[in-house]
Design a protein around this nucleic acid. Structure first.
Length: 118
RNA sequence: CAAGUCAAUCGGACAGUCGCACACGCAAGUGUGAGGAAAGUCCGUGCUCCGCAGAGCAGGAUGCCGGAUAACGUCCGGUGGAGGCGACUCUAAGGAUAGUGCAACAGAAAUAAACCGCCCGUUUUACGGGUAAGGGUGGAAAGGCAGUGUAAAAGACUACCGGUUUCCCGGCGACGGGAGAUGCUCUGUAAACCCCAUCCGGAGCAAGGCGGGAAGGCAAUACGGGGCUGCUCGCUCCGCCUCAAAGCGCCGCUUGAGAUUGUCGGUGACGAUAAUACCAGAUAGAUGACUGUCUAAACAGAACACGGCUUACGGAUUGGCUUGCAUU
RNA sequence: GGAGUAGUACUCAAGUGGCUGAAGAGGCUCCCCUGCUAAGGGAGUAGGUCGUGAAAGCGGCGCGAGAGUUCAAAUCUCUCCUACUCCG
């Protein structure tokens, strides 16, 4: 991770839920709020509705991998919470990455969006 | 070859690129990295705290015999019973003359017998007596069946089967076998209370321990509040509130009733011994993504550890045995 | 991770071995009240599913699921499933 830490505590998550803007698509819900740091902090939330522990663990890894491979084109200084919806349990990596990038773009977190889509 | 039965093993593989956690290392890097059920939390242990793990009552668990084990409700080997042609499988399987309770409906009657029937008698459309062979009810109706016998019947008598019991033999034992005796009036239920035998103190790693700041307010040595504890006894702990949030860091945490390979003992569960290596340890929680090839792939993810049980699971392989058919 | 509680008609629920397919309430239908409705009062029926039948009715299965004990199970025992609560 270049400039990203993870959200750890319950009060941090609740701060993002209360203050952040949310945008959703079929697979994910993304909450974003500005922090006063020069790094990003991201947390993943996968509830029991998505599936058993194997499925939840796989969903978390897919999201983490998608973020890792796309981190170089992101702005910094935000707290992000990504909530997986029930449809994620059948998703592939391509679905996860496409869905995550879609929401990042709608939140205008992509850096210099013109050279991203080359 | 077909059908069946029992047991064991595997639990995607290989290559490349990019990543994650831990250990070692100045660094580059190297090494290791989820399961047969990691699951359910149903049992049993270790470990930690409750003073020592205490006394009594209550409560709970187990329940054919012998063994294995740290222990078990588990496992192994047997016994009895049930099922199957068989290999084999299943079995909460102590006590119902220690006591108490319950047994609806039906039925004449449910632990106690005469409703119908049969036979005899009389004062003959009825009454009295005898009778459990027959009918019917019921889950269960007075050992079964055949004969003798009788007014009609009845273990009243006899043979066979079943039961109970005494002795002998075999076995550590459950129990088995044999010989004899006894005509046998004894319902079911203990996963109803209970009796007998054996065992169980409670809580759980969010156990528990260590470290760390300054300030303010209130109370005062006995009341009170807790803990072991469901009750009694007994023992034992404690100033409270605010900043302060079930907050932070570290330990517990992984070398173990362990693993692999071999030898020996044992029918077996298992035990003994030698050698070898160290083989997950996170703390919002690490094993993933992409590409290619291959018959395409299930159930499912460690959180203190271990022994079992139960439940879920696509498919593949191996071996033993049984029955049937064919061939030699 | 650990400890516990519950599951019965559409909903809330009583029933803890036998005449209980299951009390009761909401709900549903009809009547009264009102100009009409709501509220209120009174009466009543069926209760799920399968089979049969024109219907009434009759029979089987059904108290989260599956086994077991018992003559008999919503009730007792065991194993699973689902939902919920608690932990310093």
């Amino acid at each position: 991770m270049l400039f990203t830490e993870s959200l750890k505590k319950n009060h941090q998550f609740r701060f993002v839920y209360n203050r952040g803007r949310s945008i959703a698509n079929r697979y994910l819900v993304m909450y974003v709020v500005k922090n006063s740091l020069d790094i990003n902090r991201i947390g993943y939330s996968v509830s029991k509705k998505v599936g058993n522990s194997v499925v939840r663990s796989r969903v978390t890894r897919l999201l983490r991998e998608s973020y890792r491979l796309n981190e170089h084109m992101l702005e910094s200084g935000f707290d992000i919470v990504v909530v997986a919806r029930a449809a994620m349990k059948d998703a592939s990596y391509a679905d996860a990455e496409h869905s995550l990038k879609h929401l990042l773009k709608k939140h205008r977190l992509l850096k210099e969006q013109k050279d991203v889509y080359a």
